[in-house]
Amino acid sequence: MKSQASFWEADVSKNRYDLIVVGAGIVGLSSALFYKRKHSEKQVLVLDRASHPLGASTRNAGFACVGSIGEHLADMEKESEKNIGRRIIRRYRGLQLLKETLGEKAIGYEACGGYEFFNSQQKFKEVAPEIDHFNGWLEELLGEEGVYEAQRLEGYPVIYNRLEGALHPGKMMQELIRKTSESGVEIRWNAPVQEVGSSGEVELQNGESSSLILKGQNVLMAVNGFARKLLPEIEVHPARGLVLVTDEQDVMPWKGTFHHDRGYIYFRNIGNRLLIGGARNIAVEEEETNQFGINERIKDYLIGFVSNVLRLPPGWQIDYEWSGIMGFTPTKTPIVERVDGCRYIAAGLSGMGIAIGMDVGRSAAEMMD
């Protein structure tokens, strides 16, 4: 028998919100927070399909990074230096905004620095000559001197980046949820959205066999890697990322955050544990999916990297493994725009959600003024 909405549910659903945000990740909550701070009298609702942000906001590796030289050089094969410069500025300012808004202690921020890691002397020789150029460029863009420096670590050549750090994504989202709720924004969990109409009708799946319609004067879809479920025509493609965390080691030689192979592989220490993730470039088509899961080929590759390249002692074990879903645009530039009517989109963070997510959310809030 089909269940029906109760009188109380139907009555509440008649309320018209000034803003409905679909997605309670870093972008969705940030947009709601900044919008509410500017418009305290307006009614703002955030909807999320799960009991907590599920896509990438709490399932990433916790890197607070502006980018390695190797990553920027690879991007220059697809984009102009001017556009990449804008992205570096956005990452830098986005991280400042995140720390200022939530507080470094609350998000577990560590100013540990970051390293571009090379296990090939030839690859290092291709990138290292660009250090002076990029130091001059970042001084011009950010006012920061001497950002990059060539070093050696555990016998490998590395390029140190003093601007980078690490944080705790769980604590970050916990604090963002708290601040957003305290601002007066209503957050509904376990509220999967089926469809968003151009006139602001948001259809929720209400139980197994009935639906509930909410109405918003404006509706922002901030679902990143899941954007095409609501807007099939949008140029945001899902990409799954794998993350592994080892058991505790007696000694952990790798302290800080590390990027390898143009950023496709990344690792860092969590105390005396090693976190490692990425390598989706060895199975690009398989990993262009919005389905969670473990790709065994990528897992085996990362395990081999830990044992043979990073040389953790024999007998190390994986204590945690999980996947997250990111959203990529063709140029890595996020899409923040009005779709039609009262519908807006903020998605496609292209693996840079920690650095730019809050800034994208603020831009989305300003767009809907």
Rank of each mutant, 00 (worst) to 15 (best):
A10P: 00
D11S: 06
S13L: 01
Y17D: 05
Y17A: 10
S31E: 10
S31R: 07
Y35R: 05
K42G: 00
L47H: 08
G62L: 11
A64K: 02
E81H: 06
I84P: 01
R86E: 15
R90F: 14
L97S: 12
Y109V: 06
Y115M: 12
Y115R: 12
Q122M: 11
A128K: 12
E130F: 14
F134D: 06
E139H: 14
L142A: 05
Y148R: 04
A150R: 03
A150P: 14
E154G: 13
Y160V: 06
L163M: 13
L163N: 10
R178Y: 06
E182K: 11
G184Q: 11
R188Q: 10
Q194G: 02
S198R: 12
Q205Y: 02
N206V: 05
G207P: 08
S211T: 15
K215F: 13
N218G: 00
V219K: 01
I234F: 06
V236F: 03
L244H: 04
V245Y: 03
D250W: 02
G256L: 11
R273F: 08
G278L: 04
A279V: 05
I303Q: 07
N308T: 05
Y320R: 11
G327W: 00
F328E: 05
T331N: 15
T333H: 03
E337Y: 03
V339W: 13
I345C: 04
G348W: 00
M352A: 12
G357S: 11
M358W: 08
V360T: 14
A364V: 14
